[in-house]
């Protein structure tokens, strides 16, 4: 009998120190609701770091002749690859010219695809140290960055990633 009362006494005292979780849970749910309502998943952003030339130099494309056929061994070449981006009056991409090779389609996406294939074949054997991109004044930023991005994926003549990319206005 005495033992039972002691046990009961201990149980009673334990019940007294039990925390009330309801209030804490209430606050936690309010915090959770705030974070859920203010949460906005942002797209995965990336950065392209460029060092633009101090004094833009125009490079004439007449000095570079690139055929659509297989690339010949031109190890001694020491000039940049010129890429010309022409724009439509509304800012969309019109055509891309690399040397004598013209990539043009009614669909800018298709033009970009052609450019991509051309770059893959051109840089199959790296022969260029740098790239000069000449851009039409009205061209949108997006096609320009797509072209630049593809250039940065190529290898220079020494096997290092292509980092020397100049961007100048197209005359």
């Amino acid at each position: 009998m005495i033992r039972r009362s002691r046990r009961h006494k201990r149980k009673h005292s334990e019940a007294e120190v039990t925390l009330n979780m309801a209030a804490m849970l209430d606050m936690a749910f309010q915090l959770l609701a705030f974070f859920i309502l203010t949460f906005r998943a942002s797209p995965i952003e990336a950065q392209i770091s460029l060092r633009l030339p101090d004094s833009p130099q125009a490079t004439t494309s007449s000095s570079v002749q690139i055929d659509s056929g297989p690339v010949d061994p031109m190890d001694d070449l020491n000039f940049p690859l010129p890429i010309d981006l022409y724009s439509l009056p509304n800012g969309e991409l019109d055509k891309i010219v690399i040397g004598s090779r013209v990539m043009k389609s009614d669909d800018p996406v298709e033009t970009m695809q052609m450019y991509r294939q051309e770059m893959v074949s051109l840089f199959e054997k790296p022969i260029f140290d740098s790239v000069v991109i000449r851009v039409g004044k009205e061209l949108y930023y997006e096609p320009l960055m797509q072209v630049v991005d593809l250039c940065t994926k190529q290898k220079a003549k020494d096997g290092s990633p292509m980092t020397k990319i100049s961007i100048i206005p197209l005359k």
Binding site: E45, Q47, I48, S49, L50, K137, E138, Y140
Partner: peptide, 27 residues
């Protein structure tokens, strides 16, 4: 949809004010 000309003006302004490190953010 920013035109290249506008972009270059801003880049030139950055360079003129000694901000030589420039990063372009893309998705």
């Amino acid at each position: 949809k920013v035109a290249f000309e506008t972009l270059m003006k801003i880049v030139d302004t950055c360079k003129a004010n000694r901000f030589s490190k420039i990063d372009f953010v893309v998705v």
